[in-house]
């Protein structure tokens, strides 16, 4: 699943550490999310969307059958 987290984060002038701090996750999780290596839980996706003041669909682009593992 692709996402626009890095693009939106940079647009807001936030570092990965700052975003991690806001979302209360580790910096590695933010990095993995941005690289598309990890898909967030629905709760984290909502937290990200709320922080970015947009919708989940605007951040995450679903491309077909995929799983985390």
């Amino acid at each position: 699943m692709k996402n626009r987290i890095e693009e939106i984060r940079k647009g807001m002038g936030l570092t990965q550490e700052e975003l991690a701090d806001w979302l209360e996750v580790s910096r590695q999780t933010v990095s993995s999310l941005e690289n598309g290596r990890y898909n967030p839980s629905i709760l984290l996706a909502f937290r990200i969307a709320r922080l970015f003041e947009t919708t989940i669909e605007d951040i995450f682009i679903y491309e077909g059958d995929e799983t985390n593992a």
Binding site: V25, S26, T29, Y38, N68
Partner: peptide
Amino acid sequence: EIDARDERTKLINDM
């Protein structure tokens, strides 16, 4: 506390 709650860390641990 954040690291202990981090969902990715938890998932990695569980897997």
